[in-house]
Every structure is written in structure tokens, then in C-alpha cells.
Design a protein around this nucleic acid. Structure first.
Ligand code: SF4
Ligand code: SF4
Lengths: 152, 152
DNA sequence: GATATTTAAGACAAATTTGTCTTAAATATG
DNA sequence: CATATTTAAGACAAATTTGTCTTAAATATC
């Protein structure tokens, strides 16, 4: 698993929220946790990392909830990942051989390095606006809750 | 982290052993754990997964230790990963959105799918022989022990 | 102001991963 | 056969991640 469960939940929740951007004000967390089948309190703690990192804004009380802090085109997947799993999760190597790097590559570096960089660029360049467009264009109906896993 | 620590340790240990292939009989695990700076007993348990999966052969007693079960060109990195972290670690998606897949892609699938497949192929196609050649050709001197992390 | 709704915060518990230790079994050597 | 070496196996502990619960604070509505 490249990302922690917390990170995946955070990404899913952000996708969910971003679908309502411009249509509703604040989305209550319990609605999200219900839709995604995630523990409400666990999700709350995850989302707090996003509000602390100015990715989301939260509002308490009736009609409260969370919403994006910025325009969807200004929020990348990478930001979410960094806010939840930290900087290292994508910078560090899959093998993590110590003391290595470009000037002292391990036997896999030539192959892995470019792949890792490409992966990083995907997350850096994909914004929530891109995601929303994909959702709309492809008329995507995701089953947010776990239901047997992905088929590849 | 794509792989568990156990998996990374297993890969490092296998690299270490394969460097002596054809030169020494069995490599004692305590030598490996010393060289790699890993707990001896923890490494022993990890390596047992490799012996159970016919990747390594172990031998008890003086002059005992472990060695590769097959020729280096017949052992891929992928096998090691599967033996330790299981099949799913590379088949499952980084995001793990449920119920999705090629026929029901999430907004990242078009980008992530090919990357994941390419990654899979690297590990499937890279054998210990490839690794050894790299080590020799590049006259690689790895510092097996952690010493501050990779520089990228 | 009273009440219901909703996030914030933190204590706590469960599960998983990582790491340690002890004992047993196998084997080479003298 | 006695001894030292080395893996096997499994109990146990520590650390981390995941998940639950309780209380407090903010806010809309009546
Ligand atoms: S040399 Fe590169 S591929 Fe190899 S372990 Fe280090 S960062 Fe990873
Ligand atoms: S559709 Fe593809 S990329 Fe998206 S979550 Fe599923 S497997 Fe992953």
C-alpha cells in the first residue's frame, strides 16, 4: 500500500466534497462518512488535517460541515497526500535502500527513479477540477463504499 | 510506503545473499542481519517466508545458513515481494476506490493504470541476475545499513 | 435564552506491524 | 557422544495505525 488508509479516506472524502463545489455550502462530515462507509470520528480527525493545511474550511453548528478552502483548480491530489501522509510518502523510495540516490544508485534506481517521478507528477498535476471534469464527462457513478474491491 | 519493512528487509537480504551466489555455500543469517543492521530474529522470520516459497534454501548447524534455491536468473524481485507482502500489494490500486476498475474507472485510472502496470513489469522482469550484473558493472558499493536515508 | 446540530480535541481501545526473547531441532566437528 | 553453531517456531512486547467514545465549543433556529 502506497498510502495509508487515512490518506485514501481523505482523498475519497475530498472527491466527494468537490463534487458539490458551487452547489452546496458546507457538507456535514456525517453525510460523507455515511456515503463512504467510514467511521465518522476517524474521518473527522483525518479531515482536520486538511483544514489545518488550508485545503478545507470547516464550520460548526447547524448547516455546518466542510468545504474546499480554494477553487478546485488550485487543489492538487499531491497536497492532500502531503497533508495526511506527509512529505516523505512520495519522495522516499519503494525499496528505501539507505544512503543511495542518483549519485549512488542501487540496481533498480535507473528503472524506478523515472517511474516514481512520473507518479509524483500525476499527483502534482491532477487537480480537483480535473477530477470533477472526469466525473462529469464520463458520467461516473462510483460506489463509494467498499463492495468487494477493485477489478483491474 | 509501497512495501512493508519486512518486504524491504527481505529484498535487501536477498540482494546480499545473491552477491555470494557461486562463491560461498550457505550464508548465516546473523552475518546478514549484522551487515544490514536488522534484528536477527526478525530477519529470520522474514527469510522463513522465502524458504517456504522455494526462493531460498536453509540449512541448520555449523556452516549452515541460507542460499538461493534457484539460479539468480530464475528469481524475480516480484517473487520476493509476493512471498512477503502477498499478491495484493502490487495488484491493488494506490487509491483503492472500491468497486472500480477498467470498466468503471475512477478519474485517476487512465493515468495510474499504465504506471502501475509498468511498475509491476519492472519487478516481474528484474531478476537477481540482473541485479548482480548491475552491482558488478557499476562497481556498486552499497551501504547496507541505514545512514540517513536516500538522496534523490 | 434553550435546544439541536455540528466540528474540535483528546482519551481510549483494537488491530496490525515490528521487534525481542526463549526453547527446540538439526548438523558439523572433535 | 559432547559441544558449539545455526535455523525453526512460537510466545511475548513495543510501536504504529486504525477505530471508538466522550466531552467541549461554536452556531443556527426557535
Ligand atoms: S538507489 Fe534509487 S531505487 Fe535504489 S533504493 Fe535508492 S532511491 Fe530506491
Ligand atoms: S479506477 Fe483504477 S485508479 Fe481508480 S481507484 Fe480503481 S483501480 Fe485505482
Amino acid at each position: 500500500m502506497l498510502f495509508s488508509k487515512a490518506c485514501i479516506y481523505g482523498i475519497r472524502a475530498t472527491f466527494y466534497v468537490s463534487l458539490y463545489q458551487g452547489k452546496r455550502e458546507f457538507i456535514p462530515i456525517n453525510e460523507i462518512s455515511d456515503a463512504l462507509g467510514i467511521s465518522f470520528h476517524f474521518l473527522t480527525k483525518i479531515l482536520q488535517k486538511l483544514t489545518r493545511n488550508s485545503i478545507m474550511i470547516s464550520y460548526r453548528g447547524p448547516k455546518g460541515g466542510i468545504t474546499l478552502a480554494r477553487a478546485p483548480e488550485d487543489i492538487s491530489i499531491l497536497e492532500i497526500i502531503k497533508a495526511i501522509d506527509g512529505e516523505e510518502s512520495l519522495n522516499s523510495c519503494i525499496l528505501g535502500l539507505p544512503g543511495c540516490g542518483t549519485e549512488r544508485p542501487c540496481p533498480l534506481h535507473d528503472e524506478w527513479g523515472p517511474k516514481r517521478d512520473a507518479l509524483y507528477q500525476i499527483f502534482a498535476n491532477t487537480t480537483l477540477k480535473n477530477i470533477n471534469e472526469k466525473f462529469l464527462i464520463e458520467n461516473f457513478r462510483i460506489s463509494w463504499k467498499d463492495n468487494g474491491g477493485s477489478t483491474h
